[in-house]
Amino acid sequence: MKWGIALLALLLALPASAGIEVRQFPDPELETRYQNLIEQLRCLVCQNQSLADSNADLAEDLRDEVYTMLLAGKRDAEIVDFLVNRYGDFVLYKPPVKKTTWLLWFGPFAALGLGGILIWRIGKKRRPEPPPPLSDAERRRLEKLLQDHGSDDS
């Protein structure tokens, strides 16, 4: 049991150590910006990991690039542009809103709206129509039936 727990702890500790080099930052604000940047940039080799998570060689090199540019005083937007110019929008975990990504951004809402309209229309069709009011003859017959039924009961 003890060994089991130890093993589990080791397994949990593994991802935490991935992709972390020792980096020196002159001030903590730069470090936060660095962390933010590498978390929102995608590693192209592993594709479903960010630069921060990936152990791939290229991710390491790209982290180096981001670090060097930060120290050189580049703005976040400039650093992101640097990577987008080379690797395309794919490096961004959050793709920009533009014509080619409209479907991606608004598609789900459109589908939701369409589904809502469909459900509303189907629901309306299924609701039974209220029966027409009884004619005088029908009313008399109903009363008679009720009376007969009542007399049978007693």
């Binding site: 192209l44 080799v45 060689d57 290229l58 090199d61 790209l62 690039e65 080379r86 690797y87 395309g88």
Partner: peptide, 12 residues
């Protein structure tokens, strides 16, 4: 160093 490859957008 692989720097030029980064400029060319090489990832594999």
């Amino acid at each position: 160093a692989g720097k030029v490859a980064i400029d060319w957008g090489v990832y594999g």
